[in-house]
Design a protein around this nucleic acid. Structure first.
Length: 426
DNA sequence: TCTGGGGTCCTAGGACCC
DNA sequence: TCTGGGGTCCTAGGACCC
């Protein structure tokens, strides 16, 4: 029997690869004249919305992501404002993923512009961590024309924090054993999961640096902040304590929810406009469910009023669904029950969760009806792929309920209005 | 300053069941 | 009828991340 390896053999080598100013860099590929200039991605200077990404030149003026666009415009009037292009980012993200895959079989995209790689045991093939990282860094630039930063550590947490310290365009390796020393001088805010609120709580008890946190008794943190406090104590030591961070690299499970929401450029209390939006959002959610072959049991409505107060109202169905019309029925019922007519709405959202394999079948007649809907919707999805989102609109809720329409005309549903003025048509 | 859109995870209370 | 406790599901809200 082989003896079990000792701890050094169990230590992992994790890379965290983070693309530098990703959205801005991608926009620069499409318009090289943007290079070196203060650029803000996310919308126009006078629109409602926030900054998705800012170029380093714009950051010098204090502009950063999540800042309202109008504020960014005031701080940096000469900035160039660019709308976001999610398709471009997805496409580039796939290229990034392909490069990463040639360095390790265990790759996990944590978001559109960052990934974890488990590089444990790759030394033979790729050399020691720093060598491998520099190779990766170079290959990324060659293949995608994009800069990234790479953090290397014995845990996801250390890799993540060190990639942040390596930015921009750098590589940083925290040698095993040096984790606590590396973290100690950093602000507690650098720990993933510590946001504004937690930071404030910690400041109130005199804790500003990760080193301060590490000195505290574990039990005291648990008493103060519960389960989270316990995880926090581990994080201060550089451990992947708690939940998601604990998992193996490359084993993230499937999506747990799908949602779409819309903020109006001007608040509205117009029922037909509001319900038309709910229809559109239901269609988008339904479509994504069908693409992922998922059926949702819980449908949730989100309402944000003029004064920014926000409520959510959910309903769980007996039978899960992926059909636009059924989602819309649920969400419209919730809307009618909860919206005070006349009150100005800023945002509407539709959210689907509690995914299940497929409805248990009972009523054959009902099954038949549903199947015909599914076929019809597949055709609609196909048309939208070909001619764009605007090309096909389902009957909207303004004109009578969906249930009525279903009975009248179960199969021949798509409003079969095609818009030949679309950009894809000549 | 006037606050997007897409997600994840956690907490807490009430219903319901045993 | 004054009433225990645990498990699970549902709903609402909030912190946090990119």
């Amino acid at each position: 029997m082989a003896t079990f390896p000792h701890t050094s053999a169990l230590a992992r080598t994790i890379f965290h690869v983070d693309m530098d100013a990703f959205f801005v860099s991608v926009e620069e590929l499409f318009d090289p004249s943007l290079k070196g200039k203060p650029v803000v991605v996310g919308g126009q200077r006078n629109e409602r919305g926030v900054v998705s990404a800012a170029s380093y030149a714009a950051r010098k003026f204090g502009v950063h992501s999540a800042m309202p666009l109008r504020t960014a415009a005031k701080m940096c009037p000469q900035a160039i404002f660019v709308d976001g292009h999610p398709e471009r980012y997805r496409e580039c993200s796939e290229k990034v993923f392909h490069v990463l895959q040639t360095f390790s079989p265990q790759v996990e995209m944590a978001s559109i512009d960052e990934a974890y790689l488990d590089m444990t045991g790759t030394a033979r093939l790729l050399g020691p961590p720093l060598r491998a990282a520099h190779k990766l860094h170079q290959r990324m630039k060659e293949e995608t024309l994009l800069n990234c930063s790479i953090g290397i550590g014995s845990s996801r947490l250390i890799a993540k924090v060190s990639s942040g310290q390596a930015k921009p365009n750098g590589v940083l390796w925290i040698v095993p054993g040096e984790e606590a020393k590396f973290l100690a001088p950093l602000d507690v805010r650098e720990i993933p999961g510590v946001g504004k609120v937690m930071e404030k709580h910690l400041h109130e008890i005199g804790i500003r640096k990760v080193g301060d946190l590490a000195k505290l008794e574990e039990s005291e943190l648990e008493e103060r902040f519960g389960k989270w406090g316990l995880a926090l104590a581990g994080k201060a030591r550089g451990e992947d304590a708690g939940g998601w961070f604990d998992s193996e690299v490359g084993e993230r499970d499937e999506a747990k929810s799908i949602s779409h929401e819309h903020t109006y450029n001007e608040d509205t209390a117009d029922v037909s406009q509001l319900e038309a939006t709910l229809m559109r959002l239901s269609e988008m959610v339904g479509r994504r469910l069908r693409e992922a072959n998922l059926h949702a049991r819980t449908i949730q409505l989100k309402l944000r009023y003029k004064d920014f107060t926000t409520i959510t109202r959910a309903h769980s169905r007996k039978q899960p669904t992926q059909l636009d019309g059924e989602i819309f029925e649920e969400v419209r019922a919730l809307f009618r029950k909860n919206w005070k007519p006349g009150s100005q709405i800023r945002l509407l959202g539709v959210h689907a969760s509690s995914f299940e394999a497929q409805a248990e079948q009972g009523d054959l007649l009902e099954d038949n009806r549903q199947q015909r809907w599914k076929n019809a919707l597949a055709a609609v999805d196909h048309l939208r792929d070909k001619f764009g989102e605007a090309s096909v609109k389902l009957a909207s809720g303004i004109r009578g309920t969906f249930r009525e329409r279903t009975h009248e005309n179960p199969a021949g549903l798509p409003g079969k209005k095609t818009d030949h003025k679309g950009p894809n048509q000549s």
